[in-house]
Design a protein around this nucleic acid. Structure first.
Lengths: 138, 138
DNA sequence: ATGGGTGCAAAGGATTTGCAACATT
DNA sequence: AATGTTGCAAATCCTTTGCACCCAT
């Protein structure tokens, strides 16, 4: 079946699969564009005409809470989601708004130092600026 | 004068001082709590009864655009502002919501590596978890 | 029948916009 | 007078909430 990977991912994170959840996870896996709730909703509306935005909100929040996706707050206006939960940093282009993956700096064990003061549960490394494409278009 | 530092900071960043701008910058300098628009507005309402929230929005945005303050997107719900523009990381406690300063990892020149792909203008390193105080209160 | 999952409509909250009033040069 | 600044009210956008319906066990 086409959605085996999505289903397995849900199960792996203890999330009961449903038609909507499978479709949303499948979308996250196949689109590494760090989509917003609205983008996911719009993209899946054709496939699942009865889908509601509330469900997309609920589902993505559920994914994030269970570690099946990461919630990015790099964009001040709206939250984005990443189906790739491996540790990595993000770059957001201020012109086109796209978010790109980039490697974590070597010192990403840094939080160990902070461990004495804080119980660090999440690491978010964000860069902002202009992407190569937009830089050329000037 | 008490507000000399605030005025000098504004001038340094090419921002024309006004009563409101001076008061807001002064607040940012004296309160390293990473306040929200609402917190700044509420705190200054007594001092400047005619102050409007729109002005606080405009002013803090102006500060951020001119490099006189940093806009933090660590909290998914609302934006926070930091009058300390020296490079440093932030930790947000998920329980009490407070945001703490912390040192940047040694390899914060990391963006140099990214330079080939992106024009990096801002670095935001965020950590989330539980602060020592909240951890004790369990 | 029971509990979780979904979706509509309404509410809530943060932020922006339009525009008129105001201050300062 | 001219320009930049402020502030009110309304609008906008994102997100959450309340609740009824539905589906699968």
């Amino acid at each position: 079946m086409a959605n085996t990977v999505a289903i397995n991912t849900l199960v792996k994170y203890g999330i009961h699969p449903s038609v909507q959840r499978i479709a949303i996870m499948d979308y996250l896996i196949k689109h590494r564009t760090h989509p917003t709730v609205d983008e996911v909703y719009t993209a899946l509306s054709d496939e699942i005409p009865t889908l509601s935005k509330t469900t997309v909100y609920n589902t993505l929040k559920l994914f994030a809470e269970n570690g099946a996706a990461t919630m990015l707050t790099i964009d001040e206006r709206k939250v984005c989601f990443d189906g790739d939960v491996h540790p990595h940093a993000h770059f957001m282009c201020k012109k086109c708004g796209r978010i790109f993956d980039c490697p974590l700096p070597a010192a990403a064990e840094h939080p160990n130092i902070l461990g004495s003061y804080f119980k660090v549960e999440e690491i978010h490394y964000y860069y902002k600026g202009v992407c190569a494409e937009c830089e050329l278009e000037k």
